[in-house]
Design a protein around this nucleic acid. Structure first.
Lengths: 129, 129
DNA sequence: GCTAACGTTGACGTTTACGTCATGTTTATG
DNA sequence: CATAAACATGACGTAAACGTCAACGTTAGC
């Protein structure tokens, strides 16, 4: 009963809109939901995870085009040893760029915290003086 | 000789374009450069830092409007004890949201790394088998 | 089996964050 | 002091990432 849902439920579970789902399908970011006889599309629950991952990567500052270039690394495991090694290389490269970005943001956070601390200490001194 | 520059140099040092500087001025993100007699604007070197900070906050996913709401917390220290306490509160709130965002991105990074490790271990096993 | 809720397709609209001229003025340099 | 390089201002253009509306077909609950 948890198997396969329509676009409305998928969108809701992934906290996006149906429009966004269709837009991503049109960009090849998301496989098209399969039709069952009628004209409507049905999606497997794992697509929720894929959508969430796409949103995560967007928050890292990747464009949808860039996301399209890496999203498969997360969700399709390649058949064949050769392909697996290739994908591993790409995953490492991807991890490196993500590390870079997160590192910069972490630094911004640390600078902000340092600023807050300086501020607090200044006020501490005033209270004693 | 390091004191005050024109828009071209400011932009270059902050790694943005002059257009961006003017756009930010128009949004109130950046104070307008002061004119010296003629029609041209001159900027003090600290504006480079302000611009860099704006770009940092953008990378954290803040819109320019949101940046406008917090950028002064970094660069203007309020006069008056009352005001200082108020700003401290805002700084702490800002730090909390930044922590939230960076935390999520850090988690995305960790998930990616875990994925890479799983991949590596799988290949390790294959080599031995 | 009817009706409300949901989905489909296509097209046009919107917001954010600038890019890119055009035209006139200002500044720096040989 | 002439002239190229840089700046000012205004207007229009653009790319990304969707929003929104219309017109029509599908599905689900009573």
């Amino acid at each position: 009963m948890n198997e396969r849902m329509r676009i409305g439920e998928l969108a809701e579970r992934a906290e996006v809109t149906p429009r966004t789902v269709r837009y991503y399908e049109s960009l090849g970011l998301l496989p098209h939901g399969e039709r069952e006889g009628g004209g409507q599309h049905y999606y497997r629950p794992e697509m929720v995870l894929r959508l969430r991952k796409i949103e995560q990567l967007k928050k890292l500052g990747l464009s949808l085009e860039e996301v399209a270039g890496v999203i498969d690394l997360y969700f399709t495991d390649p058949s064949g040893l050769r392909a697996k090694h290739k994908v591993l290389g790409m995953l490492r490269a991807h991890l490196a760029t993500v590390d870079q970005k997160v590192g910069e943001l972490q630094q911004a956070r640390d600078e902000l915290q340092a600023h807050v601390v300086r501020f607090e200490q200044w006020l501490e001194v005033q209270k004693k003086g």
